[in-house]
Design a protein around this nucleic acid. Structure first.
Lengths: 317, 317
DNA sequence: GCAAATTGTGATCTATTGCTCAGACCATGA
DNA sequence: TCATGGTCTGAGCAATAGATCACAATTTGC
């Protein structure tokens, strides 16, 4: 009868100490005096209270749920980085929130004094993020594009994220002066070997941070909506099992790159799978959930920036 | 639009910081790096999170309620000490819990190296407390009785708390070799002036700690049950407004001592009102609630040891 | 009944936290 | 435009908390 009694009174004391510490706000020294133990023991009681989960913390703020989701995503998929932002109820598909966060990541990385290489992929969130980066003079950094910035019709209208970001930092920048998709595999192979392009690819391979969008491969796939791939090409990829894409590279539900179709003619830089350097995907929306899930599960990316609603959907069975 | 936005994002950050600190268990330094602020700012965010009550602590343990009640009693009645112990559901009137606590107080006081004077009053809890004090050699302390230890019939059978406690400490002790109640006011006045008694009273007046029981003055009053006052005397005191007693001294609902009745013939040492030195009342039970309330409100005592059920009743309405 | 093992304790050292202060920054109004 | 008052920031320091160690107490196993 002695052991459970002792244990009980020990937990009682732990609870008392925890109460006095967290709720009444006393110092451990004061608590030690009150409970007639050494300060060391008071400290142990407080930790015991924590360890035994006698005391719990409740954060009454929408952010709390986001932090929780981020933490779960991080451990579920072994991510090196994860941010979940509150979903704007007025505009559930808005990229504003994730763009803000992404900009934050970019700024953090660019603030570094030692030279870094940042690679940018496609996606509205990535473009919006670049817009939100505040200027900082870092001429030693390098900004490189993972994806060609010339559309199918030959125009260079494709939004120049790399240039914009370079403007803000004074960094050297490497756009990729190539069409997104070549007309044949041979042509693609020739193009990516020409000197200026090879240089871009070499820089990109060493990128310290990649920030890319994650696209779904369905009827509303961004690569199709933007006119980079035709309806037929899209349908073929879907037939081949494509469920999502990063920088145009289509992958299946397990995060494996599709072998054929447009993947043979893409000029953009393929993701390393499994991903090595920090590669953060930014995406929101219910439609993208399967694509994001596959990217996470298949280690196409090792970081994610999304919103609360999307995060919940990803974690759902 | 800037101010509310800033403020909102500030609270967001505070919530984030609070989450990272309390729930994820990061240090403020780590949080500072994550949120891209100085450590000082991270610290401010964490305190803001606390100040704005974004985060709350919940203690999942019966002790929590007791601590809460003790804290409320303390501030409501301006007590220097208050302990509330869990009510034993199997024996709601048991003095075991409060005796344990009271013993603790006694031990704490007696552990002091500098000489202290401890005065003991009546009450089962006080007697039980003394029993639970573990021996400690402190011959420089003094233990003094506030109340005569000879009952009406002349026997000295009345439980000798002072002697017991002195046994355990080696302290000098001053029992009060007097009947509880004299037959007349004159006789009382004569008795308390005789040398040995006057000495006891002098020591008692300087007591650093008084530990006393609080009795109710109703049909089941302990002073009557124990045979110290007759039924008639009890009824007279009740007519005079007596609602409770400490060391025999009856007081009314406001905590004022009753002028007449047995109070004129008591040999025990009256409470100072308002109380100056630390005077702790120990009592449990629904029947004692009015007596305890009056003692607290009238500053008959400035400390209380009770149980959860009694504490709730005291605080009610 | 004794020795081993486990557990708890206080001393002491190190890390973390809270606080103060001087200066920067910003908004406001003359 | 510039002074003015208020608010926020980061540096540095003092207070507080946490970790480690050797040792003592207690329990457990033989």
């Amino acid at each position: 009868m002695a052991a459970p009694d002792n244990e009980k009174s020990r937990l009682d004391d732990a609870a008392r100490a925890g109460w006095l510490y967290f709720i009444a706000g006393h110092t451990q020294d004061e608590i030690a005096k009150m409970l007639q133990v050494s300060r060391a023991s008071a400290q142990r009681l407080v930790s015991l209270c924590l360890a035994e989960r006698l005391i719990t913390f409740r954060l009454e703020h929408p952010i709390a749920a986001c932090m929780e989701l981020a933490s779960r995503l991080k451990s579920r998929f072994g991510l090196v980085h994860c941010d979940v932002v509150p979903t704007d109820p007025a505009a559930p598909l808005s990229t504003a929130g994730i763009a803000e966060r992404s900009a934050n990541i970019l700024e953090t990385t660019l603030r570094s004094e030692t030279p870094v290489i940042v690679a940018l992929g496609t996606g509205r969130a990535v473009r919006a993020a670049v817009e939100r980066v505040s200027p900082i003079e870092r001429p030693d950094h390098q900004i490189v594009s993972l994806v060609g910035n010339i559309s199918a019709d030959g125009s260079a209208s494709f939004y120049d994220t790399v240039g914009r970001l370079a403007d803000r930092t004074g960094a050297r920048h490497y756009p990729m002066p190539l069409p997104f998709l070549m007309s044949s595999e041979d042509e693609r192979n020739r193009m990516i070997r020409i000197e200026p392009i090879a240089r871009v690819r070499a820089v990109a391979a060493k990128a310290d941070l990649r920030l890319i969008g994650i696209g779904q491969m369905d009827q509303k796939a961004q690569v199709h909506v933007d006119g980079f791939v035709t309806r037929e090409e899209l349908l073929e990829m879907m037939r081949l099992g494509a469920i999502g894409e990063v920088t145009g590279w289509a992958y299946d539900a397990k995060g494996k790159l599709i072998k054929g179709g447009t993947n043979k003619r893409l000029t953009s830089i393929p993701p390393q799978i499994p991903v090595q350097s920090t590669t953060i995907g930014a995406a929101v929306g219910a439609a993208k959930v399967p694509a994001i899930k596959a990217a996470l599960a298949g280690h196409v990316v090792n970081g994610l920036i999304t919103d609360e609603a999307t995060a919940r959907a990803i974690l759902e069975r």
